[in-house]
Design a protein around this nucleic acid. Structure first.
Ligand code: NAD
Ligand code: NAD
Lengths: 231, 231
DNA sequence: GCCCGGCTGTTATCCAGATCACAGCGGGTG
DNA sequence: CACCCGCTGTGATCTGGATAACAGCCGGGC
């Protein structure tokens, strides 16, 4: 059994929703409720839960606690594993603040920067170390996920160092497209491209003012793309 | 002709790469070069360019300038359009700093926050206005894209206000799943879920230490997921 | 006790996007 | 001039994720 990427992403969102419901005292739920809360179909939720190894009863639905236990087993990293953040600039600081507020699994265990003025600071409870110590720190305390929030020009080099230091997944906020050994998982989060995409599909919804095409080929007056669209 | 979401996202990355090459003085390129630079197949690049209405010669490849012109026609919003940012906290500030550095298309034209201490500040050259002025400002100066960087609890309400004020696409950094009128484009950027996904697939790559499944169903020792993986 | 309704679990079907494959071209070479 | 080579443009095919469909179950109503 092998989980697909979109499914694992959905599992994370199921978990978030279920945690809130658990806090509110809800003990059981139905696939339909999760589906409505997250904008999915009930069939998709059921299928995901089935593949995840969860089961429910047709009359009582699924027990919230059991779902959360199962998700912990599946999603939580081993005890002392965690994230390694490279680049504590604007974005890196936002991430540290954000992750500091969350559940204590998947903590940032190490943060590196090349700027001497930044190193030595403690941001969101995490000490920022000089970038040169990356190898020695990870040798002593291996981490499986690296996060890149450095200038794009430094991304490839740092990614290679992370992988050499034992990291097996990289979350890349940089515009650089990383070339890494087969087997390393790369999640690109390209905020710039996402903003441009949103701007494009916002325009595509305009009634008529088609921008004049300078070439012979007419600008496509695109209409609704199917997915990621408000239901 | 209608563009798919992944294709528009790729067009944005083609453009970024081509801009750099243009600055470096390169005048022509081949599908293979773009493909290699971005980790795609040459066939995919050719198909995208074809659908975008670009053409090249089999011996000279594609002219860089023509590609960039075409991409501007397709992707650039009308002159005074731009982004509207809601929530100038940690993430909002990082976005303002980031967007301040980029090409002047797709500017942040308005930023709102509910915190009186934040309003009145100028962050990255953009004045932060009190959230109550959202409607009046957008009435005077319509913008087609809204960006949500507020607490999840405020997201749905703000999204509705944005849409009522004329916004047709929303980039949602919040964990909330937005329910909006059909026709509004929503791009969810769920950083928390992406980090958990990376942690999961990092673990899935471990040789053997399968975490003990408490239930009867064994934990799937997942292997490589197909996409978003280092080539 | 029997039927009904609705929810789960699972199989079958569909579809968009990615990949493959190749015809056509055009310039370079000998 | 004829051939070759490699690139473009594009139809054909493949794939896996999402959707639809439905059998089975269970509890509740009558
Ligand atoms: N800020 C955003 O909202 C945003 C949005 C999208 C993408 N990005 C991307 O994220 C990256 C970081 O953006 P930012 O706004 O935080 O930039 P920034 O300049 O504020 O921060 C970059 C940090 O990386 C550090 N750094 C540079 N080289 C380093 C190295 N070799 N090792 C370790 N640290 C190094 C710098 O000292 C700096 O602190 C950039 O690639 C940017 O394009 C940022
Ligand atoms: N910081 C990150 O890196 C990060 C990562 C992933 C997701 N997020 C999400 O992005 C959102 C913002 O995160 P953050 O770290 O910037 O939080 P933050 O608390 O630093 O900032 C939130 C800002 O929103 C403002 N705000 C609150 N209610 C508002 C309203 N009704 N109208 C306008 N502004 C309002 C607050 O005054 C504050 O300035 C959160 O939903 C968070 O979960 C953040």
């Amino acid at each position: 059994m092998r989980f697909s990427e979109p499914m694992v992403e959905r599992l994370a969102t199921y978990r978030r929703t279920l945690r809130r419901w658990q806090r509110e005292g809800r003990e059981r739920t139905f696939s339909r409720e999760l589906a409505d809360a997250l904008g999915l179909s009930a069939a998709q939720v059921r299928r995901d839960l089935m593949l995840a190894g969860c089961s429910g009863s047709s009359t009582q639905g699924y027990p919230v606690d059991a779902l959360l236990d199962r998700f912990s087993t599946l999603l939580d990293p081993p005890e002392d594993d965690g994230l390694c953040l490279c680049g504590v600039g604007h974005l890196g600081r936002a991430l540290l603040s954000y992750l500091g507020r969350r559940q204590p699994k998947l903590r940032v265990r190490a943060a590196f920067d090349s700027d001497p003025a930044t190193c030595g600071q403690s941001v969101g409870g995490v000490a920022v170390l000089p970038e040169e110590q990356l190898e020695s720190v990870l040798a002593k305390h291996p981490l499986s996920v690296g996060v890149l929030a450095v200038p794009a020009s430094a991304a490839q080099h740092l990614a290679e160092r992370l992988v050499r230091a034992g990291v097996r997944a990289i979350v890349n906020f940089t515009a650089a497209s990383l070339r890494l050994p087969h087997g390393v998982f790369v999640e690109d989060i390209d905020i710039g491209a996402s903003l441009e995409k949103a701007a494009f599909f916002a325009q595509a919804r305009r009634p008529h003012p088609v921008p004049p095409a300078p070439e012979s080929v007419p600008v496509p007056v695109s209409e609704s793309p199917p997915r990621h669209e408000a239901s």
